[in-house]
Amino acid sequence: MSTTPPPPLRLEPWSDADLALLRASNTPAMTAHLGGPESEAQLLARHRRYLDPEANGTMFRIVLPPGGETVGSTGFWEHEWGGEAAYETGYAILPEFQGRGLAVAATRAVVDAARADGRHRYLYAFPSVDHVASNAVCRKAGFELSGASEFEYPKGHFMRSNVWRADLSAGAGAA
């Protein structure tokens, strides 16, 4: 296990201003493992969903202190898996900020946020089996690999995904 401290970051609630972040993340490179870029109408619908945490889960922009530079997004939302209610998470770090450990630090922070929410025992992530970097994020953030499965994301796009799980009942700081 690495002794390098995680990079400092903050998770801030999604706001109206974050539509620009969705657009910046909607590139062929950023969506290659997710079925490709979305249309403007799909982005606007996603943004509206992200603004309604009661109905659609808790989304965050990832911000670097001290200046508050936005580097990506993450969040957690309701998801049933294996017949049990759980949370699901996802993350996106803008290309110019990748390779700095920010996705791992943000994923650990979202584990803590989901744990504090307290409604479910598990938080899942479903990266494509072919997405090496995203699978590494799950492993480094302390998730347990529990297999692979066909997974639909976005709606109508099926992919072979690894199933990563964090146990939220574990002590704080453990995934």
Rank of each mutant, 00 (worst) to 15 (best):
A20N: 07
A32F: 04
G82S: 07
R48T: 14
A29L: 11
R46W: 13
T31A: 04
G75S: 12
A32E: 15
L64R: 15
G57P: 06
R23K: 11
N26A: 12
A29S: 13
D52K: 07
W77A: 13
T27A: 06
D52L: 01
L22T: 01
P28W: 04
G35T: 03
P53H: 03
F60Q: 07
P66K: 10
P65K: 12
G35M: 09
R49D: 14
L43V: 02
P37S: 08
L44A: 15
E40N: 07
E84L: 12
G72H: 05
F60E: 08
G35R: 06
G82T: 06
T74N: 10
G67A: 15
A24L: 12
I62H: 03
M30D: 15
G82L: 07
A20H: 05
L64P: 10
H79V: 11
N56I: 11
W81A: 11
S73G: 08
P65R: 13
G36A: 00
L44S: 13
T70Y: 02
G57C: 08
P37E: 05
S25W: 01
E84A: 14
L44Y: 11
V63A: 14
G67V: 15
H79M: 15
G67F: 13
V71P: 09
G68R: 13
G82R: 10
L21Y: 03
R23C: 00
T58Y: 12
R61D: 05
P28I: 01
L64E: 13
R49V: 04
L34D: 10
H33G: 00
N56Y: 14
P28K: 05
L51R: 09
A55C: 05
T31D: 02
A32V: 15
G75E: 04
L43W: 05
T70G: 04
N26G: 10
I62N: 02
S39A: 08
L34E: 13
T31P: 00
D52Y: 00
L21M: 02
N56P: 09
A29M: 08
R23L: 02
V63I: 12
I62A: 03
N56T: 07
V71F: 09
R61W: 05
E80I: 01
Y50S: 09
L34W: 11
G57K: 03
E54I: 02
E69Y: 03
G75Q: 10
V71A: 14
L22M: 06
L44W: 12
G72A: 10
A24C: 01
A20F: 00
E78R: 14
S73W: 09
G67C: 11
R49N: 11
L44E: 15
R49A: 11
G82I: 06
R49S: 10
A45N: 14
L21Q: 03
R61S: 13
D52I: 00
T27H: 08
E40D: 15
